[in-house]
């Protein structure tokens, strides 16, 4: 464990807590893409299957349990509890356009052709594009609530910090995993447009609006 990965995990945790707080406090999931949350639940479910087979540390186990539980809790809030506030008309990104190519890629490009490894690879690839429905929804509505932009910023920073962690581990531990690194770079690049808007607008107290 290093400070970059720890701060990445903290940023990830913060993003999830911000999202849950936003939905719970405002009793509304307006502006939140349920499809991205479904993809995240799929990402954690397929990645953390080793929860039962390999124990790394109490921290590792606790975080995996939390990520899985919170992703399903978010789906429950969006599609059941506050479904009246779910903006179905703007959450129209076709998930199958993401899941299917990622599934094929996981079978073609992986480190080991075993079920657990293919599921892990699928999860890594899927996570890199899972935010697209959410970013698409923000661009479609042309704006996002400030709290939602904080959620997106924390979520985007998590994987950006992981990239620094991978550089660190490459030089100090001789560790690298090209699949995770390339997917992580793609994932972070997808946020760049949003990062720019967040820094130039939200941090100056303005509303996050996109040129629709």
């Amino acid at each position: 464990m290093n400070v970059f990965r720890l701060s990445g995990d903290v940023s990830h945790l913060l993003a999830i807590l911000i999202l849950l707080m936003k939905i719970w406090k405002t009793r509304s999931c307006a502006g939140i893409s349920g499809k991205s949350q479904i993809l995240f639940a799929l990402v954690y479910t397929t990645r953390y299957l080793d929860l039962f087979t390999s124990f790394i540390s109490p921290y590792n186990t606790a975080m995996k349990v939390f990520f899985i539980a919170s992703s399903y809790a978010t789906i429950y809030l969006i599609y059941l509890k506050f479904k009246a506030t779910y903006d179905r008309n703007h959450d129209t990104f076709r998930m199958e356009f993401l899941v299917l190519p990622v599934l094929v890629l996981a079978f073609v490009v992986n480190h080991d052709f075993t079920p657990l490894e293919i599921l892990w690879t699928f999860s890594i690839y899927l996570e890199s594009v899972a935010i697209l429905p959410q970013l698409f929804m923000v661009s479609k509505t042309g704006q996002a609530e400030t709290i939602t932009s904080h959620y997106l910023f924390a979520l985007g920073m998590y994987r950006a910090l992981y990239i620094v962690n991978w550089v660190y581990r490459y030089y100090f531990e001789g560790f690298y995993d090209l699949i995770a690194i390339i997917a992580g770079v793609v994932q972070t690049v997808l946020y760049c447009d949003f990062f720019y808007l967040y820094v130039t607008k939200v941090l100056k107290g303005k509303q996050l609006t996109l040129p629709a």
């Binding site: 990965r5 390999s54 590792n60 975080m63 892990w120 995770a180």
Partner: peptide
């Protein structure tokens, strides 16, 4: 350089 088989990252 080795690639860690155990996924110790989240």
């Amino acid at each position: 350089l080795r690639r860690s088989a155990v996924k110790d990252e989240l």
